[in-house]
Amino acid sequence: MRLGLRLPQRLGVDLQHDVVEAARTAEAAGYASLWTYERLIFPETPAEPYAPPNVPWPETQRQAADPLAVLTAAAVATEQVRLGTSVLIAALHTPVQLAKALATIDQISGGRMIAGLGTGWSSDEFRATGATRADRGRFLDETLDVFDAVWGPDPVNFRSPRVVIDKASVLPKPVAKIPVMLGGGGSAKALQRIAKRADGWLPFLATPGPDGAAQLRASWDRIREMASEYGRDASRMEMVVVGNVTFTDRPPGPDRSPFVGTLDQIMDDIHTAAEAGADELIVDLNLQDWFTSTRQMLETAVEIRERAAAS
């Protein structure tokens, strides 16, 4: 199983220097990919908690630098690692502009872009862009349709409730087809969308240990089974697990959440993801409030990569 690393976007990051340093360090350490996430605004009194039932939004996300700008800097600073978003919220973007931005980064990087998308959950962010929670699934489907159209041959003809393109060139095109991966999967409709439309899945590990591996593998098997029923080549699909790491001073008990605990426990969770059949795992250290510098974060990232390689 490969490892990817989330790039620093959080509060306190020196964007002028830290993004490039992190990208180069991760590639040199053997990470296979670099990823960004999207947080558009940080409401003081959000409509929804960060996680149920009442988990507050992480203060480190008060700043979440633009994910595509960060990936562009990483593209220039690296040669081989893949560059992905985990995830962009489709409803926060105009589909044609998003398709063009992703294709541009793909050209700059020589064909290393991965488009990870999701429906999102924050009513505050939807309102900031003129959308609503009710729009989110429909806008994601429309965005996927626009990608198919504008990344294809010119002239492009496309019509949907929001987008009209009438015999127009839409350039640049991607180097090759950009893999589109989808997050979520908590509902039957979400699983169906992944199976029918996506090149891969970006899930979280719900439970540590063998039970968590079995649950994740069962969902992944179901997605690929449905993909085959749609006439797709399920063997070409990827599962990239997202690991949002939070270190603790003492080992939490058996009811701990995945990727919360000591370094040894985090390594156990990485092995669990591999046992579930993950092709890759994203190590995200952005939530860790006691990383006082990007260099300190990178030292831990390199240690995780070395321990994973040794095992």
Rank of each mutant, 00 (worst) to 15 (best):
T292A: 10
D106K: 13
R256S: 13
M297E: 13
V87G: 05
R250N: 13
V240T: 15
P43A: 10
A101L: 09
I223T: 08
T104D: 12
A64Q: 11
M267G: 12
D264H: 09
F158G: 13
A190N: 12
S33L: 01
P208S: 04
P258V: 09
A115P: 06
W121E: 10
R39S: 10
A65T: 12
T72S: 15
A218N: 05
N54P: 00
V96I: 13
H93G: 09
G261L: 04
A65K: 02
V240F: 07
A227M: 02
V76Y: 03
L298M: 14
A278V: 04
R24F: 11
V170D: 05
G137V: 08
V241L: 15
P254A: 15
I114E: 12
R250S: 15
P52F: 11
S219N: 15
P172C: 03
T262Q: 03
A213E: 08
P258Q: 05
E142C: 02
D269I: 07
K100R: 14
G209M: 04
E229K: 11
A29D: 03
D221M: 14
W220E: 11
A234W: 08
L216S: 09
S293E: 03
R62E: 13
T300N: 03
A310D: 14
T85V: 08
G231I: 05
L285F: 12
G137F: 13
A22Q: 06
L92Q: 13
L281D: 00
P179G: 06
Y31D: 00
A227F: 08
S257C: 12
Q265D: 11
T78G: 04
P153W: 10
S169E: 13
K196I: 00
K189Y: 07
